[in-house]
């Protein structure tokens, strides 16, 4: 946790933010947070990661000195637009259901010659893992405004949905928590944050439709993999592996439930 405000270029901006804070006290908390997000939206630093991801997508890199431009994200080689709102999905070449981030790692391994397992084992925000997040931000941004419609045609995709559902309701850990403890009904909060009900479509730009997102409080860009990793930390579960079946299954479960929700990713969070 560092500084609370994103912007302090001078006295003028400070005054604006303070006036905003005073006005917020009159309203309820959710409105206040929504207003805060609105103010930050215009200067979302996720744009910086999006630009970085776009450059990485086109740049020739890795042991094979190749770009990712022929990477198949589910809509054919090189098609980026619209891919995000149909992931996770089944890929025949890896014979697995993959989410955006694990698919990107597969492409980096197949096309560029990177060691996929080494990337999966790298802590978030370091080395190539940082590049995966930037790439995911770029791919997600290309589908901004589109509506989620995950395919459920392949038996593996339907199986993963059932796995995801079980994982979502699975209680354990020292707090006897499950995902459903917080995200299983409407109107729940953690501290002052409203929590989306992920057992159904929580609405446009909420829950699954809002990540990757830039977190103002720590200045980090988070993909869905890190979001889930941190959910498990908050539940005091062991950390799930990067791109593991559990995390992909949860992605399928949330993504299928969010059918019809508009994607606003990359979003900005407090």
């Amino acid at each position: 946790m560092r500084r609370g405000l994103l912007v302090r270029p001078g006295a003028w901006a400070m005054a604006t933010l303070l006036a905003g804070a005073a006005a917020q006290a009159q309203k309820n908390t959710a409105d206040g947070i929504a207003e805060y997000r609105k103010m930050l939206e215009d200067g979302n630093p996720a744009d910086l990661f999006e630009a970085k991801g776009e450059a990485l997508w086109k740049q020739k890199r890795g042991p094979k000195n190749a770009s990712l431009e022929s990477c198949d994200l589910g809509k054919g080689p090189g098609v980026v637009k619209g891919a995000f709102v149909e992931l996770p999905r089944y890929f025949a070449d890896t014979a697995k259901v993959q989410d955006l981030e694990s698919r990107l790692v597969s492409c980096m391994q197949a096309l560029q010659g990177f060691d996929g397992a080494a990337i999966a084992g790298t802590p978030f925000g370091r080395g190539e893992q940082d590049n995966v997040t930037a790439l995911a931000t770029y791919v997600a941004a290309a589908s901004r405004g589109l509506r989620f419609s995950l395919p459920q045609g392949h038996p593996e995709e339907r199986r993963l949905y059932e796995v995801g559902k079980r994982v979502f309701y699975f209680r354990g850990g020292p707090y006897d928590f499950s995902c459903a403890s917080c995200h299983g009904e409407d109107g729940k909060r953690i501290r002052l944050q409203d929590l989306p009900n992920l057992t159904k479509n929580p609405g446009d730009g909420v829950g699954f439709a809002a990540w990757p997102a830039y977190r103002v409080s720590n200045g980090q860009m988070w993909g869905m993999q890190l979001r889930l990793n941190d959910c498990y930390r908050q539940q005091r579960f062991p950390y799930p592996g990067f791109g593991s079946e559990v995390t992909v299954a949860l992605g399928v479960y949330m993504g299928v439930n969010a059918k019809g929700a508009e994607s606003i990713a990359p979003a900005i969070k407090r």
Partner: peptide, 16 residues
Amino acid sequence: TAQWGTAVSKNPFMQF
């Protein structure tokens, strides 16, 4: 022209 210090956030946004 502006002189900035450590109180400005990471990845700063400036509007003028």
